[in-house]
Amino acid sequence: MNTTEPARGAALELLFKKIACTRMRDVPVHNPALRVQAIGFAPVPDEPEMLLGVLVTPWFMNLVRLPAQACLPGATLLTNGNKGKRAVGPQSFEFVGAFEPDVGAFEVCSLFSPMFEFANHAAAADTASEILRLLRTTVTSTVSTVPTLPSRRGFLFGRGTQATQAQA
């Protein structure tokens, strides 16, 4: 694990702890049983310069695409407030561009908001971890039970499939 990964997730977590105590302090959508936590930030397989994780707060749970290095919105990230589809594992999600001076540009996809469905922080953190596990699971190919069909020419001339020709 790259040393910037925990630092970037920790910076995002710290930022949202500050937001929880300031901008969101008196907002009635807070679930008092929850706290701010950045969970599972790790590189995206096809984009090693991008980290993917989940941010849990008392008012939302978001899937977050966070650059490994702080940057401005633009070429590789959505600009603040703009929406765009992003592939995450086998799924496609709509993300929204965000920018905060303390961490730079990042993209968010709302998973839950508000957070009153969660009885405690452990339940929210477990849900976030399970979402990441499912998104990061690689679909493994299985052996097909459908027989390989012969090529058109092989069929017409009774030669079978390339596999049966190799066995002969």
Rank of each mutant, 00 (worst) to 15 (best):
R136I: 05
A119H: 09
L63D: 03
T22L: 08
G40S: 02
A105H: 00
F112A: 15
V146C: 07
R153I: 07
A168H: 11
L135Y: 10
E100G: 07
V64W: 01
L15N: 01
S92G: 08
S144L: 01
N120M: 02
V64A: 06
M24I: 10
R65K: 08
L52D: 06
P58I: 03
R159N: 05
H30M: 10
F106M: 00
V29P: 05
L156H: 10
R152Y: 07
S92R: 14
A87M: 11
M24N: 14
V36Y: 04
A125T: 11
S144P: 03
L135C: 10
G53T: 01
R25H: 08
D102E: 15
F118R: 10
A166L: 12
I39W: 04
N2V: 08
T57V: 07
V108K: 14
Q37D: 07
G89E: 06
D26Q: 10
A166F: 11
E47I: 03
A125V: 09
S110F: 08
G53Q: 01
A166E: 13
S110N: 15
V96Y: 04
F112Q: 15
L14I: 04
A122W: 03
V108F: 09
R152H: 09
Q91L: 10
L55W: 03
R152F: 04
S92L: 07
V88Y: 05
Q162P: 11
T57D: 01
A168N: 12
F155V: 04
F157S: 06
A119Y: 08
G158L: 01
C109A: 13
G53V: 02
E117R: 12
L14N: 11
R153M: 04
P101W: 05
V54H: 01
F112S: 15
T140R: 12
N80I: 05
L135F: 11
T164P: 07
S141Y: 11
T4K: 12
T145M: 14
H121Q: 13
R65D: 07
T164R: 13
L78I: 02
A124K: 03
C71V: 05
D46H: 11
L12P: 01
W59T: 14
V88G: 09
M61I: 12
P32I: 09
L66M: 03
G40Y: 02
Q37L: 07
F116C: 04
N82S: 06
S144C: 06
R23F: 09
V29T: 14
P48A: 03
P28W: 05
E100R: 12
T137N: 06
V54T: 01
A11Q: 06
M1S: 10
A124M: 10
L63H: 02
G89M: 07
P101F: 03
L55I: 06
V88H: 03
F116A: 08
A33T: 06
A125Y: 04
R159Q: 11
R133V: 07
A122L: 10
I39Y: 05
F95M: 00
V54I: 15
F60A: 15
H121F: 05
L14H: 12
A70Y: 01
T127G: 04
L111A: 09
L135G: 15
N62D: 15
R23D: 13
L134V: 11
G40Q: 02
